[in-house]
């Protein structure tokens, strides 16, 4: 048992799975530190090159089509690749391999081919401008054949990533730049460390976690927004508004049942995500509640999300675009009055 940051938890998950199963390997830009590289842009693979060698921690050219295509091809014939993206936004360079190839290969082959690959992609705004900032989850929750996970603390990061590596479907793991923890401090970053058990564990996909119990409002939020929602819930509790905060943990599959159970009790639903408002993953959750659980609600669903603009650079503007604690608190107050 030891206190661990997300970056350490991800590193442990990869190392333990690589020790357990020799078909697991990593590939990506700058991920090794042998002959170039620095353990990955966020140091998640730090030290792994030294332990596993250049054959299993593979530094690649700056070639996202290659990285994703090699992951698909090697997964098809018995390997379990973990592909690394420095910034999630670069994922658009590999869309064909993810959406047309990885996601469809099992289906098109009549179930005879499987693609057990993982792609890790850091998301979230961090004063780097619009091409190093986006929250990308909803692009991929739309794709049958993919799974999408988004750990918000170290315990989940380790358990979900291990499950992803063992899963026989392609899994995209979205990690938030401001949640990695450790030495590299981003402005406004948190370090959601956890006490992690020594023994091996995995976390099943499609199981949300209730992070705070409450009676008046259900707030569903992921990644950095989960932490801001928790902070908002604390403020709101002092005003007599009791919030239940749910972390979906995986977005595809999504645990709708836990949300339905919660709103049965609270009758009010607020969804908070850093992805922009229109057609973010909150849109699907809203539609699902409208279809299957509308009668539990006493008020319209409230969504708090980034505004529908590319992410601006200036910290002043970036902080305005991304939901902050005040906006979540304000949203909750309005929701209580409606």
């Amino acid at each position: 048992m030891s206190e661990t940051t997300i970056v350490e938890a991800l590193n442990q998950a990869i190392a333990e799975e690589m020790r357990r199963d020799e078909s697991v390997y990593c590939l990506g830009e700058d991920i090794s530190s042998l002959d170039g590289g620095y353990g990955g842009a966020w140091a998640v693979t730090k030290g792994l090159g030294e332990e596993f060698g250049a054959e299993r921690i593979i530094n690649t050219p700056i070639s996202e089509i290659l990285i994703s295509g090699v992951a698909v091809g090697s997964a098809m014939v018995g390997m379990r690749p973990i592909a690394d993206l420095q910034y999630g936004d670069f994922i658009f360079c590999m869309m064909d391999q993810l959406v047309n190839q990885a996601a469809k290969m099992k289906y098109m082959s009549g179930g005879t081919v499987e693609i057990p690959m993982v792609l890790r992609a850091p998301v979230g705004a961090s004063t780097r401008g619009a091409q190093h900032a986006q929250s990308l989850e909803a692009f991929f929750t739309h794709v049958p054949g993919l799974k999408v996970i988004c750990p918000s603390n170290a315990y989940d990061a380790k358990g979900l990533l291990k499950q992803a590596i063992r899963d026989n479907s392609p899994v995209i793991c979205f990690e938030h730049k401001k949640l990695y923890g450790g030495k590299r401090k981003e402005e406004g970053a948190l370090s959601p460390s956890s006490v992690i058990p020594d023994e091996d564990y995995v976390i099943e996909f499609g199981k949300a976690a209730v992070r705070r119990e409450g009676e008046d409002i259900t707030i569903v939020a992921n990644l950095l927004m989960l932490h801001r929602a928790m902070e908002a819930a604390e403020i709101l509790s002092k005003e007599g508004i009791s919030c239940e905060v749910i972390d979906p943990r995986t977005l595809l599959p999504f645990d709708f049942e836990t949300v339905f159970e919660s709103i049965k009790k609270t009758s009010r639903l607020m969804i908070v995500h850093e992805d922009n408002y229109t057609n973010g993953w909150g849109s699907e959750l809203s539609a699902k509640v409208a279809e299957e659980a509308i009668y539990y609600l006493d008020a319209p669903i409230k969504r708090v999300a980034s505004y529908d603009v590319p992410i601006p650079f200036s910290p002043v503007m970036e902080n305005y675009v991304i939901p902050n604690v005040d906006r979540i608190v304000e949203g909750a107050r309005n929701l209580m009055q409606s």
Partner: peptide
Amino acid sequence: IKVGAIPANAIVGGNIPIAAGIGLALKM
């Protein structure tokens, strides 16, 4: 795939990096 013919690919060039991936797997 039992006779080594992976599902044919209808995205022009889509199979090229996949073939590299299979090659990498064989080497590993």
